[in-house]
Design a protein around this nucleic acid. Sequence first.
DNA 1: ACCATAGGCAAGCGACGGCTTGCCTATCAA
DNA 2: TTGATAGGCAAGCCGTCGCTTGCCTATGGT
Lengths: 95, 95
Amino acid sequence: MVVTIFRALDDETRRLVLDELASRDGQTLFEICSTLATRHGLSLTRQAISQHLGVLEEAGLVMTERRGRSKFHYFNPAPLAEITRRWPIPERTDP
Amino acid sequence: MVVTIFRALDDETRRLVLDELASRDGQTLFEICSTLATRHGLSLTRQAISQHLGVLEEAGLVMTERRGRSKFHYFNPAPLAEITRRWPIPERTDP
DNA sequence: ACCATAGGCAAGCGACGGCTTGCCTATCAA
DNA sequence: TTGATAGGCAAGCCGTCGCTTGCCTATGGT
């Protein structure tokens, strides 16, 4: 199944994962689990987070790098440009 | 239920509706139905499109204006700024 | 070799989303 | 007033998503 960035972004947990990686890049699965738990009160299984990371990776929003038995995750905002390319966002939002 | 812009964008039909309104603003429900059918081969019920428009309106991506028995729909890209505000998009995407 | 650590695979369940169907309301024209 | 046009409400079906549970693989330390 093809995962679009729109599907990937349509989940608050995945958005929090992106926030986490944006603030501290290169975290492992277990690190993301613990930071999500302590900073956002998320009580999710490791597998749940793993699946979320899989979706984000398929969408190209997260890049990974294996070293030994660890897998490091990096936030890649580049695919988000598809949104602004499709619907240009006005500079200012003054009502 | 609260409809976020992320949920609203996570549907190709809704994205096509936004494209349609972006290219020709102020269309009615029936106009959107026919243009989607002719230009994208979408064979959906009027109610389906109506529900999509409802979701887009709840998310603030579509503004409406009633005149008589017609309801005109306008694309409002302003809420999309939430995305770039949360995750700044790099200017260029040269690899 | 042994065991703990870091992660993956797959099945199953509950809930929600998209779409249809059927019927109803409101506005305009004759 | 009658009928046609533009749209709304609500129930129901089916597929998909998020999450858990259980088990398996692989790397590193001692």
